[in-house]
């Protein structure tokens, strides 16, 4: 229960960010000719951003099933790497049926937060998924049923929530060593190429993220391999200790 609640709390910023993205999705789905219940059903069964936007674009045309399958695989292949990564950190009890059930919630953002855990517990993962899932479904429903009711200024501000969260995960890690800084610099460089070079702009955003991340992580893995498990354990223990000290400092300051 303690872990579930801790996960629940960690999911709040993700849920906030999802609200604005899924709201936009709901509006887009209606404009592509879906009913409100179809839009909500797509969000509740799929829980992904890029894939859903690409999907409703195809639904507007009849008979593109194979194209849909291929585009979904390329857009979503990044999830496979995330699942492997979290699988390595999963708690002993987080196996079998729990992986079949909870793997459903492996989104970019849930992965990002879960990857910060030393050992990912199933109750934490479920807690972490709860608010984002509600936010994703509710946002879609509001967008599909009510359209543009939120002022543009608020939508615009909410759009930065998810990115703010990503920054909060990556920046503290960058202080620890040049290898993570290199990973960030490389990923930024590749991602900018896909963003600004006209030929590369044709690549879907889901696929380009996968390519950028895989190449950047591979280069770093070759140049700066992380040491053995024991060393990692030590490092992790040290990190925990540092965090504890920090927490205590915060407490004393307050």
């Amino acid at each position: 229960m303690k872990n579930y609640l801790r996960g629940l709390k960690a999911g709040i910023p993700i849920g906030l960010g999802y609200l604005s993205v899924s709201f936009t999705f709901g509006i887009a789905a209606i404009s592509y000719g879906l009913n409100w219940w179809q839009a909500i059903l797509v969000s509740m069964t799929t829980v992904t951003s890029a894939g859903q936007f690409a999907g409703i674009g195809m639904m507007a045309h009849p008979g593109l099933y194979w194209q849909m399958l291929i585009s979904q695989i390329t857009i979503n292949i990044r999830y496979s790497f995330m699942s492997i990564s979290i699988g390595q950190k999963a708690d002993k009890k987080f196996k079998g049926i729990y992986r079949w059930l909870l793997g459903f919630f492996m989104t970019d953002e849930i992965f990002a937060v879960a990857s910060q855990e030393e050992s990912v517990k199933r109750s934490f993962f479920l807690g972490l998924s709860t608010i984002p899932y509600i936010g994703w479904s509710a946002g879609t429903a509001i967008g599909a049923l009510l359209g543009n009711i939120l002022p543009e200024k608020i939508m615009s501000a909410l759009a930065l929530a998810i990115y703010g969260m990503f920054i909060a995960i990556v920046v503290p890690e960058m202080k620890k060593g040049k290898s993570v800084i290199l990973a960030v610099a490389l990923a930024f460089g590749f991602s900018a190429m896909f963003y600004y070079i006209p030929v590369l702009q044709k690549v879907s955003s889901g696929l380009s993220i996968s390519i950028c991340a895989i190449v950047a992580a591979l280069i770093c893995a070759v140049l700066f391999p992380v040491s053995d498990e024991d060393d990692n354990g030590d490092k992790a223990a040290k990190k925990d200790k540092e965090n504890n000290i920090k927490d205590k400092e915060v407490l004393t300051n307050e």
């Binding site: 990044r78 990002a112 992580a217």
Partner: peptide, 13 residues
Amino acid sequence: SFLYYIPYAVLTA
């Protein structure tokens, strides 16, 4: 090592 760097690379991209 690859799996260690993947989260940071994905988030940045």
